[in-house]
Simulated assay, not measured.
Amino acid sequence: MSDSLGIAVLGAGRMGGDHVRRIDRLVGGAHVAAVADTDPARASAAVAAVRGAGAFTDPVAAMDAPGVGAVLVASPGPDHEAALLAAFERGLPVLCEKPMTPDAEGALRVMAAEERAGRRLLQVGFMRRYDREYLRLKELLDGGGLGRALLLHCVHRNVSSPPGFTSAMMINSSVSHEIDAARWLLGQEITAVTVVRPGVSSGAPEGLQDPQLVVFETDGGAVVDVEVFVNCGFGYQVRCEAVCERGSARIGEDHAVLVTSGTTAAREVPRDYLTRFEDAYDREVRAWVDATRAGTVTGPSAWDGYAMAVAAEAGVRALDEGRRVAVPRAERPRFYDGA
């Protein structure tokens, strides 16, 4: 493995465990060198079938393990900032699952630390940018054949929400992907957020405002609406339709297997994000490994992580206060020009 990129995976939960499997079995040019998790049993289980990988409870110890040349952060969001700062101090390239940080102030600190490091080290894990359908939609919009994009209609549905999931998390966790996808697809920044509260579903846990309709305005004059429904009960659905001056384009309708039995035919609905976006995660990690081995950083930057955080914070305020909230934004550092 002398020329293979050794990766420390921080977090051995569902997402982290899936990345350990992906790096170990699917991604060429890389191997899992260490896994860290606050639960020692979970860390040990994650590396049980991975030759040569060490298990740790301390993320910094995992970064300092022999052979580590890069870090993949899949720990809970509140742990990200400390992990990123430690990785930057060591000059280690990082792929960090969203959110980069839970709040905009933390995102500003991460950007400042990366700039002090003198070069880009961080890619944020907005994997929809690697999904084939989203890439095709981006290509259509950038091509200009449909004219200027006026509206994006988005749907984000989950079977059920995990314990402790809050109304705010529907925006700063679930809708965070739509925030980044909208910015990327349109090439525009979000300037204001309004949240509409429909009647609460009988399937929602007590106290959870589910579903929600989140409406974003952009500096290019487009409007983005997101239906987020995290206890729909039947499957995981992500859809996006761009309505433009001379036509429209929609993705997410046919990402399923058609099952025919007897006299009926039905499409299977994915049960979760790891199923729906499996290929996108594979492509994302492969691209990150290839770029890291070449000494470069591509993909969503810390600036994109900040832009998501500040828009999500405005969205939570809009939900809490029942009004349209403008999105404040720091000036984009020149360090991220072209990122």
Results as ranks from 00 to 15, higher is better:
residue 151 L to G: 07
residue 152 L to H: 01
residue 155 V to T: 13
residue 156 H to P: 00
residue 157 R to L: 13
residue 157 R to Y: 10
residue 157 R to G: 01
residue 158 N to F: 12
residue 158 N to A: 11
residue 159 V to K: 07
residue 160 S to P: 11
residue 161 S to E: 02
residue 161 S to N: 14
residue 161 S to H: 08
residue 162 P to Q: 02
residue 163 P to L: 10
residue 163 P to D: 06
residue 163 P to Y: 04
residue 163 P to V: 00
residue 164 G to L: 09
residue 165 F to N: 08
residue 166 T to K: 01
residue 166 T to D: 05
residue 167 S to H: 01
residue 167 S to K: 05
residue 168 A to I: 00
residue 169 M to D: 09
residue 170 M to G: 08
residue 171 I to G: 00
residue 172 N to R: 13
residue 173 S to E: 09
residue 173 S to D: 10
residue 174 S to T: 10
residue 176 S to H: 02
residue 177 H to T: 04
residue 178 E to F: 05
residue 180 D to E: 12
residue 180 D to Q: 07
residue 180 D to F: 03
residue 181 A to K: 06
residue 182 A to I: 03
residue 183 R to A: 02
residue 183 R to Y: 03
residue 184 W to F: 09
residue 186 L to D: 02
residue 187 G to F: 04
residue 188 Q to D: 06
residue 188 Q to T: 08
residue 190 I to C: 04
residue 191 T to G: 06
residue 191 T to I: 07
residue 193 V to C: 08
residue 193 V to P: 02
residue 194 T to D: 14
residue 194 T to A: 12
residue 194 T to I: 06
residue 195 V to E: 00
residue 195 V to K: 00
residue 196 V to K: 12
residue 196 V to D: 14
residue 196 V to Y: 12
residue 196 V to E: 15
residue 197 R to G: 12
residue 198 P to T: 05
residue 201 S to V: 12
residue 202 S to I: 14
residue 202 S to V: 15
residue 203 G to I: 09
residue 203 G to L: 14
residue 204 A to Q: 09
residue 204 A to W: 11
residue 205 P to E: 02
residue 206 E to M: 13
residue 206 E to T: 15
residue 207 G to C: 15
residue 207 G to I: 10
residue 209 Q to G: 13
residue 209 Q to R: 14
residue 209 Q to W: 15
residue 211 P to V: 05
residue 211 P to D: 10
residue 213 L to Y: 09
residue 214 V to I: 12
residue 215 V to S: 05
residue 216 F to W: 09
